[in-house]
Design a protein around this nucleic acid. Structure first.
Lengths: 221, 221
DNA sequence: AATAAAAGTGAAAGTTTCGTGAAATTTAAG
DNA sequence: CTTAAATTTCACGAAACTTTCACTTTTATT
């Protein structure tokens, strides 16, 4: 997940960048609209975090300059009181607003929400080589053959895939897959990972344990 | 495809309308619940996009006023923070939520998804091998022989088929087949599934239980 | 290499969910 | 009003799933 952060204040850049990196995102920085635009034209980002108020080229202008095929999910930062015209936001494809001052935790939450929303609406089927996960029908295929998994296995795999490449702690997995109100053991996750791996056959390698942290899903067989 | 957009803010109407038209949809506008209701009673729409917060008649009230036979797929717009009770939404037959501010791209994606889901088999006969379901005449044939089913069994099968491949929760089934105003047990669904399966003979296998979720229809005998 | 911490695993125990027959209730029809 | 049909609730056994536990293996550290 590559995120481009555009802000003219070095301090804010640093804070955001640090938190995003701690959450396993790839962070890129730009301190003005021109730089950001040229970066966007050169490579593909998954998310844009953009300060509206900047010298020279402001956020709105930047958004308008981005060509259609390069448009990406965007979270806008604005100072409290700055009456951001929500409507002009709409038509520019803004996905969320965060008002300064904000807590990094909140920002991370928004980032995750926006990314989840944008990914999920793209397709209800995940495919990697011979592995297919159909989220709507809640079914999994390996080499065109449906395999049967338990509900927890399915939810666990779904969550891992939707956060592919990101190391997820047992706590994270428990709170997202089991629910915040689950009060069982950490190690329950391990057991389900075990069962999931068995179900996945040769694709068990896609579920990698991150020692001392938890697990992550990667696309490598 | 005729879509009715109900929102009291002229600007939002315009934005949505513009994007929908660009995607080849026929757009109709209403700025309050009363107008919307009378339009719905006069003509058939394929989709309703509805703002919950409106002066006079709010979205929920409008939904309740729409007679059963005129009910249509609905996407609800709500402002962030407006704690829409997702559950009460489900029982009103709402198909999707979009939170303001939203990107038009996202809205279009949702619109397509909901319409695809709902009109997947709008034709009035569904056929799979020796199974025929005639939606208009409300009759079912298995190997050219008509079988008799109760009204609920028919509605249940119809809804399952129209959402084939999608795992449907008991709540979803209750709100769409029974109506949002049904306040009975979850498990009622199970009993009707049981009876439907018995009626379907060898095609009982098409109705698959999704453990922990509900049921889905699949084309496999 | 020794040690401690973390992760893998098989199996038992516990819990939830589901299928089903039968009874109770509601609805529709005569 | 009576009767049949349809719908809903209920309860219990069966099946499926989840969690814990104890033990083994692996990994990281000194």
């Amino acid at each position: 997940m590559k995120i481009l952060v555009v802000d003219d204040e070095k301090l804010i850049q640093d804070v955001i960048s640090e938190y995003l990196k701690a959450n396993q995102y790839d962070v890129f920085l730009a301190s003005n609209g021109e730089d950001a635009l040229s970066m966007i034209l050169k490579q593909d980002f998954d998310l844009l975090i953009l300060d509206i108020m900047m010298p020279q080229m402001d956020g709105f202008t930047l958004l308008k300059e981005i060509p259609k095929e390069k448009r990406i999910p965007t979270i806008v930062l604005s100072a409290r009181g700055e009456e951001v015209d929500k409507l002009s936001g709409f038509s520019l494809g803004i996905d969320d607003y965060v008002t300064k001052p904000f807590s990094p935790k909140e920002l991370i939450a928004r980032v995750k929400a926006v990314l989840a929303r944008c990914q999920s609406s793209i397709g209800d089927i995940y495919t990697y080589q011979g592995l297919e996960v159909h989220f709507l029908s809640r079914s999994i295929f390996i080499d065109q053959k449906e395999i049967s998994v338990t509900p927890k296995e399915f939810d666990l795999l779904s969550y891992l895939i939707k956060n592919k490449g990101i190391a997820l702690s047992r706590e994270q997995l428990l709170s997202h897959v089991w629910g915040y109100d689950f009060f069982g053991e950490d190690r329950t996750v391990d057991t389900h990972i075990k069962m999931l791996r068995n179900s996945l056959g040769s694709y068990r390698k896609c579920i990698v344990t991150v020692h001392g942290i938890g697990y992550k899903y990667v696309e490598e067989k």
